[in-house]
């Protein structure tokens, strides 16, 4: 079945908290036979994701850990009906792997790889914008719809099905937010890591739109960082369009100017991209701001009660 047709069918059927992925999603991994690719593919499968196989050029035709390996993405999609790709290819070859998925019209491409050259992503982004695919990442933990489907490297067991969406530029900070929601038995509808690079396939607003339209999401946590204007752009969009409460934290209030804080995107360059100025804009736009990352769960509980 063509992936596009499959996606349309999926959209027609509703599941709980189903933005982007759900129990019908069929996942394959590019870079499947590598150590990380194998480990996280099997982890996703153990979580309950329908994992159908993988791609490693030159190793096509064999079975690896019980699943078929193909030489090309097109062949994998054709033979398995997969509609989501998880990319574990090392940085020098990652742009090529994403482009191969775009060419095969894979509806959802999730690039986990950290350290892809920015100029590669500039070209890839332009190609993705004119394609039938959606790219999440790169340099991201992936995404998960608790209880249904996990695509990425996040620990599955800390999640719990619920009605709060999570969007974040950071991996482990997302786990922190998720953990707080689970401890309070609030749970999550879908959690999307959009990645810490300056050029990414999907931004905050793209995901906010999906949560806004999702009848199974009641509130959203948005976790941002210093650097760039993605959070302030999102804040303005939220003010004008969002029908659901949003709780937000921006990491890096204590970061010095001009130093890249791990993520390629997390660097204060102008004056408007500090945590303080982002907090200010978020508050002006009516967003519930958590100054401490330990307060996210509590703030969500508060906005849900209102």
């Amino acid at each position: 079945m063509r992936p596009q047709k499959r996606l349309q069918q999926l959209k027609a059927r509703r599941y709980r908290g189903a933005i982007l992925i759900n129990r019908d999603t069929k996942l394959f991994t590019v870079g499947y036979t590598g150590k990380q690719g194998t480990f996280h593919s099997l982890q996703s499968k153990d979580y309950g994701t329908q994992f159908v196989g993988g791609v490693t050029p030159g190793k096509g035709g064999v079975m690896h850990e019980g699943h078929p390996v193909f030489n090309s993405t097109a062949e994998c999609v054709d033979k398995t009906g997969a509609d989501a790709a998880m990319i574990f290819v090392p940085p020098p070859f990652a742009a090529d792997a994403i482009m191969e998925c775009v060419d095969a019209e894979v509806p959802l491409i999730v690039a986990i790889t950290e350290g892809i050259p920015i100029n590669d992503m500039v070209k890839v982004k332009a190609a993705v914008q004119n394609s039938k695919s959606r790219l999440i990442g790169p340099n991201c933990p992936g995404l998960i719809t608790p209880g249904e489907c996990k695509i990425g490297i996040m620990p599955g067991h800390i999640h719990m099905p619920g009605r709060v969406g999570v969007i974040s530029r950071s991996g482990t900070l997302t786990y922190e937010a998720v953990y707080q929601l689970t401890q309070r038995e609030i749970g999550q509808s879908t959690c999307v890591g959009i990645g810490g690079d300056p050029v990414n396939g999907t931004n905050f607003i793209d995901v906010l739109k999906l949560f806004n339209a999702d009848p199974d999401t009641d509130a959203v946590i948005m976790i941002g960082e210093i650097g760039g204007s993605a959070e302030t752009d999102a804040a303005k969009w939220i003010q004008d369009n969002m029908k659901k409460p949003v709780v937000s934290f921006i990491a890096g209030a204590s970061a010095p100017k001009g130093k890249r804080m791990g993520h390629a995107g997390a660097i204060i360059s102008g004056g408007d991209d500090t945590a303080e100025s982002k907090f200010r804009v978020l508050e002006e736009c009516g967003i519930c701001v958590a100054r401490s990352p330990a307060e996210l769960g509590q703030k969500v509980e508060e906005v849900l009660k209102q």
Binding site: S168, R169, S170, G171, T172, L173, T174, Y175, E176, G196, I223, E225, I226, F249, A251, G252, A253, S254, A255, K259, M261, G262, H263, A266, A275, R291, S292, P293, A294
Partner: peptide, 26 residues
């Protein structure tokens, strides 16, 4: 800390508690 975002978040919460981080380390 593991992860850049959590490392920044850790520095931030230390600062909020009246302390002062000596470093960022992911």
């Amino acid at each position: 800390v593991n992860g850049a975002g959590l490392a920044m978040g850790t520095m931030d919460i230390i600062t909020l508690k009246g302390g002062s981080p000596a470093n960022f380390l992911d």
